[in-house]
Design a protein around this nucleic acid. Sequence first.
DNA 1: CTGAAAGCGCTTACAG
DNA 2: CTGAAAGCGCTTACAG
Lengths: 343, 343
Amino acid sequence: MASKATSIDIAYRAGVSQSTVSRALRNSPLVNLETRQRIQAIAKEMNYKVDKNASNLRTQNSHTLALLICEDPTNDDSMINPFFLSMLGSITRATAQQGYDLLVSFQQLSSDWHADYEDSNKADGIILLGYGDYMDYAHKLEKLLAQNTHFVIWGAEHNNKSVLSIGCDNHQGGVIATQHMLAQGRKHIAFLGDSSSHSPEFRDRYLGHCEALKEQQIKPNKQLQFDAISTESSGFDAANKLLDKGIEFDAIFAASDLIAIGALRALKKRGVDVPNDVAIIGYDDIPVASFANPSLTTIKQNTQLAGEILVESLLKLIRGQEVAPMLIPTNLVIRHSCGASAD
Amino acid sequence: MASKATSIDIAYRAGVSQSTVSRALRNSPLVNLETRQRIQAIAKEMNYKVDKNASNLRTQNSHTLALLICEDPTNDDSMINPFFLSMLGSITRATAQQGYDLLVSFQQLSSDWHADYEDSNKADGIILLGYGDYMDYAHKLEKLLAQNTHFVIWGAEHNNKSVLSIGCDNHQGGVIATQHMLAQGRKHIAFLGDSSSHSPEFRDRYLGHCEALKEQQIKPNKQLQFDAISTESSGFDAANKLLDKGIEFDAIFAASDLIAIGALRALKKRGVDVPNDVAIIGYDDIPVASFANPSLTTIKQNTQLAGEILVESLLKLIRGQEVAPMLIPTNLVIRHSCGASAD
DNA sequence: CTGAAAGCGCTTACAG
DNA sequence: CTGAAAGCGCTTACAG
């Protein structure tokens, strides 16, 4: 197979120097318009493309971002959290819109992901996504910071202020979910999800939940909180524990849709009617939420906007511009599991 | 911020030449074991990483694959086909397992995606995924071929034998879906999905469907075939057309789960009971399939295996090894929309 | 407006 | 086993 054309080949064909070819292809006004167009035409005809390795090496930037999706090791290999998939879609689009390429990688939390991409000049910066145990990777973030890696992280605000975090307003989401349940006349609301600092996003949702309760002079009851990570089976288990406890409850606020769907399955199995006996609200609005039976009332995170902001913020960081952490507002999506009138 | 360490910095610290550093880091047996280890230790300590742009430029390969997901322009921007998302996950994993990086990009069919990645040396090869109108991009494949780009395409077998295609056995999927419906006593089966050569995958499913009918001496009825692309709304529309026609039918074979779910919504709206009045089978087994109401019987494609085979085949192609197109068998997943006994 | 030249950071024949 | 040197294909000061 014919080896690829280089700028020297183009120069030869155009009867100019290689430097002129390089300028013309970058559309430099330094080059005479006519020769510029002639060179561009020849390049197109010869199907010439600038060698990115060479130009990146020369300019010392890659015009590439890396997306690291950190999976909880407990997660079933085949089932990626649909929320991340949705974020992936929007990040891909936003990256392309900015003229950057996107390197995607799924990583176990345990592995040594912290450095490779930017250090090896494959990417100018990194976007981190992950629902893992926060404590497990806090020190990795410190390391990234120490290396001056450009990165932005999805999720709750970080206590180290140097870490740029972008996320949805989990506290507000917890508030509006709980307010909605209260407005439906529910008083004994169980919370399914980790509420410790190991999962700052879930914790913020829980804190918002508690705040909404207090607004109505209801004292949050720790007996009604059950740990769960964001999987269907974990939600199933947590709901079973709740049922086994024999404590009174008329609603469940699940820290994620996956948890809610697992809880739904547990309730159904025990003959509990949703929403008549127990109302449920989830979190994320993943695609399956609207197809659950009953359809799942949930807190929607605007992934479209989130992807755009993540990419924009990271690019600003790379360019040395001013950036601040940001919280994106969430929306309540009312469906049949809590609030929508029955068909 | 301190600029990144280079192999020269390491060489200086280790008191050897830069060439020796390069060799040591690639673990070349040419270098004395002791010095090799000393150099590696220093590199680690200084957090040195080989500059990929430089090494790729030098070796003329990128150790990166590109994944191009071509979206149908009619598709809603926010809703990526969940089946692709699932493929994306498995391809990412398979790529990482082979020590390659993955560049991901979503493209409109209309845009000029054909060449850029490999031509610019950003990727060694391309994986193409897409449910668009086949005719629209057939000529782009020709162009890729003409440029000697290494690529593998997901889907139906291509009539140009030089195109390496990997896909699930759509014909077999159509056969087993239809056999299952027939075994349930259904006789008048509508097919929702394009059956022309514009969508070779759907066409193969349709042909399998027809073959299964013929096995039972049933003549396929073109009146029962309705075009649809793989979206929920297209399925909704197609089912409505079917209902409006007033033709007798007791089952629907939808060319994709998304179509099936749209059809389910249309039937529900018209008061048709699924599965009692009409049974439905979809295709893909996307996550929502099991949460549909009733849960959706469907043909499962093994995306895990598919991703592995796609990546392996592409790598073989790149290395100049023998590769052949491949069809992966599909499985019937029986749920309540057709075949599973009611709870 | 154009060209000759340096240099980005590696890998790898070549010589010893 | 090790080093000096060439060269991958660009971009961009520098000189004209």
